[in-house]
Nucleic acid binder design. Structure first.
Lengths: 245, 245
DNA sequence: GTAGTCAGATTGTCCGGACATACAGATTGA
DNA sequence: TCAATCTGTATGTCCGGACAATCTGACTAC
């Protein structure tokens, strides 16, 4: 069966992006089956009335996502693996929502505090200067699932407690015009202290999954530092990593 | 100061790659300081005797790595953050070696076994068909640090116990001509069973960091399934995640 | 029968140019 | 004084073409 592809030249959406989206949808939808050849670039370009560089750009973006593999002399084929979503800067809120759960958030603390040495180093601000401190408890199905403690530099964003309870921090930051770019994460585990156990309805000494993260925007500024603890019986981190050739 | 850049047209190394490597080295070395502009692409191309697409390709690869940021109308500048290494398909062996430790490996099991339902599903082979089972204990400074249990489909690679003790599994696979492509990982935590505790010199009930992973090669075949447990006091996962725009 | 060779197919790299788009700062207008 | 507009600059998108490198499969020679 011939794949139906078309581009709209009057649209402001870049042509390569239109094409890559259609190809991705076809892969997602199963129209392009794993292992099947995509047909050569030259012919594909001619069929769509595009140039080869444009077609290549579209294909390349899907290769970067891990959906396609190119082989010189052979062609481009659909990867036949359960690659669903490539890695992303995961947002707990979005993760939960995508999983069909309706996450609830209880804001425990939302105030300005002087930065400790650790926080100051992570955010690149002066020690004892004011930073936002937000402590939240994330619940799923009425059960506590994670305790999130975040620090943000001042002046970046207006932290409204009501908004924090109804959406995720990342979404708020994006809505405030901050372009998230990268994050440095560290994932570990440790035994719960009594205080931590109380917060998460666990027993003292129970294993907890911990995550620390510093997030940077596209100018390289640190925009968030977080220390999170998760109940490992309720949550685990799922990644799809791509090897960089 | 003017950056010294040059390309060797007689080299088989692609021009864009030569350029991107030199730029990356300059960033790493500090010659290109964070926040500094790179100079416009047209002029850079003219200076090097390259075309603009070639220069763009070099720059783009560094943007993908998170080292550079492009801003339309402004220019390309070096990200000023502690972005050291972008995310990779991490190999425990390589991680340790890079950290200056000399990892030791003790191979506990290395044999063919019938695939359980779980293993068969992960590797995409028939249940009860033969698969390699490798159990290893990874030590650092003489102390056990991780217990690694891996399954591999048969016929892919020759698993020599001596080699497994002196190098990492990923390195062996690469040496066998397997091109690693992506991996699906899940990181969690749980309390150690008595058996697990014994292996890692921990106490029963102590928190353990767990990782499950299925690795795929560039054709989408599953080439490895692993279940690992780490001592969280000795090891944690470090990532640098990039946001997909 | 097996190994080596060759041709076709397909992606990889590179070029030079064209126009569009967005940003920052200066200029102009109220 | 402040806001809207203009302008220069840089990247974003797109084109059409050229040659090189590599893989597959078929053919050939031993």
């Amino acid at each position: 069966m011939q794949l139906e592809l078309s581009v709209d030249r009057s649209s402001p959406v870049p042509l390569y992006f239109q094409l890559s989206q259609q190809l991705e949808a076809a892969i997602e939808h199963g129209t392009l089956t794993p292992g099947s050849l995509l047909g050569n670039e030259i012919e594909l370009a001619a069929r769509l009335g595009l140039s080869r560089p444009t077609v290549r750009q579209a294909i390349q973006s899907l290769v970067d996502k891990g959906l396609l593999v190119r082989r010189r002399g052979v062609g481009t084929q659909v990867v036949h693996s359960q690659v669903k979503r490539p890695l992303e800067l995961s947002s707990l809120y979005d993760d939960l929502e995508a999983a069909g759960q309706r996450p609830a958030t209880r804001v425990l603390v939302n105030k300005l505090v002087p930065a400790s040495a650790e926080v100051a180093a992570a955010l690149g601000v002066a020690e004892d200067s004011d930073v936002h401190r937000v402590e939240r408890l994330r619940l799923a199905h009425g059960e506590p699932m994670a305790y999130l403690c975040n620090f943000l530099p001042p002046g970046l964003i207006d932290l409204d407690t009501d908004q924090l309870e109804t959406t995720g921090l990342y979404r708020l930051m994006r809505a405030a015009g901050i372009t998230l770019h990268s994050a440095r994460q560290s994932i570990g585990a440790r035994a719960a202290t009594t205080e931590e156990a109380d917060r998460l309805a666990e027993e003292t000494g129970a294993p907890l999954l911990t995550m620390q993260r510093v997030t940077f925007d596209d100018t390289g500024r640190a925009v968030e530092y977080g220390t999170h603890t998760y109940r490992p019986t309720r949550y685990s981190f799922e990644f799809q990593l791509l090897v960089r050739p």
